[in-house]
């Protein structure tokens, strides 16, 4: 059988590969219509002055020059940095320690069921639509009789009661707290599954050498799951750039722009100020940042695949 098929196979291959092209056709047509063309249009629009009706006026790099001078735009990037901390760095750090504690200590001493129940509880917020998470928290942080303020009063800290989301000084911090709560589950789950492939003999050897838990965590666990750590940091950073929903429900970028981020700022320009060209240039800057991060992601994936082979 193998002998018979061997000869025609070579010929079939070259011709055969092209025979699969029709299967790509629906995907390619849809991709062109929904992603490629709109994306190209957005880049085009970013070089114009346009209110969304009539013919756009060519403006060259005008919008980008304005962006460079726009204080609101730079402020939105500073807030974005806060979101990267709250949605990527802090959850990854907490998730790493939790994952090690759950898969190492809890699963071994109290059984894998206990570990997976705890993991599920911590992961739960991740499943919520981010809009609903925002509604829950803006209600908790409500100024007068919100649960957060009542809780403070209950433990005798009335003086700390506050309009958490309404005061420019605390608004960004409050948004960050909500995002940490929302995000911890994601790195936790990814890291726990990464830790499953760490060779147990490494730990046994370290234990024989008398290494402390902390040293084993740092030198074995963290080193072994480095690819997962990198992927989580990149994906969550990219995800934090798409922060429109949470800002929309929690603060609408306010008070006084104190929580505005590039994602929300582009929406404001598109649909509230109808400065479509300006909005498009903000979206393009966001895209460039995302692509740079995505290229990093693809390269790390390719490298870890090579290592696996």
């Amino acid at each position: 059988m193998t002998h018979m098929t061997h000869v025609p196979r070579v010929k079939v291959r070259a011709h055969g590969r092209l025979a699969y092209l029709p299967y790509l056709l629906p995907g390619l047509v849809l991709f062109a219509g929904v992603i490629a063309i709109p994306f190209a249009m957005n880049v085009g629009i970013s070089f114009t002055r346009w209110a969304g009706v009539g013919t756009p006026d060519w403006a060259g790099l005008h919008n980008y020059r304005e962006l460079a001078k726009d204080g609101e735009f730079w402020a939105s990037f500073r807030h974005q940095f806060g979101l990267v901390v709250a949605m990527s760095l802090i959850p990854a750090a907490i998730g790493l320690v939790l994952a090690a504690a759950l898969s190492d200590v809890i699963a071994r001493r109290f059984g894998p069921r206990t570990a997976s129940v705890l993991r599920a509880c911590i992961y739960l917020p991740q499943l919520l639509p981010i809009v609903v998470a925002g509604i829950v928290w803006s209600w908790i942080m409500a100024p007068e009789d919100g649960a957060a303020n009542r809780l403070l009063a209950a433990v005798g800290l009335d003086s700390l009661a506050h309009d958490w989301l309404g005061d420019p000084k605390t608004a960004m911090w409050s948004v960050m707290v909500v995002m940490v709560w929302f995000q911890i589950g994601f790195p936790l789950v990814i890291f726990m599954s990464g830790m499953q492939r760490v060779d147990p003999s490494l730990y046994e050897a370290a234990e024989l050498d008398g290494a402390s838990w902390w040293r084993r965590f740092w030198h074995i666990t963290v080193t072994q799951i480095r690819p997962e750590i990198f992927v989580v940091l990149l994906i969550t950073t990219i995800y934090s750039l798409k922060s429109f929903p949470q800002i929309y429900v929690l603060t609408k970028g306010g008070p006084g722009g104190a929580t505005n981020v590039p994602s929300y700022y582009s929406y404001q320009n598109f649909f509230e100020k109808t400065e479509v060209g300006y909005g498009a240039s903000i979206a393009s800057v966001l895209t460039i940042i995302t692509i740079v991060l995505a290229i990093g992601f693809i390269r790390v994936q390719a490298r870890s695949q090579e290592e696996a082979q």
Binding site: R17, Y20, P38, M41, G52, T290
Partner: peptide, 30 residues
């Protein structure tokens, strides 16, 4: 099928998945 150019197509697909929707939303709306 391993159609020719599949590496490039896959990279494109991955990019599409990560692209911020902010850069598609206005043209799509229009």
């Amino acid at each position: 099928g391993k159609v020719p150019g599949r590496m490039w197509l896959l990279v494109m697909v991955l990019m599409a998945n990560m692209l911020p929707q902010e850069s598609l939303v206005y043209p799509l709306y229009y």
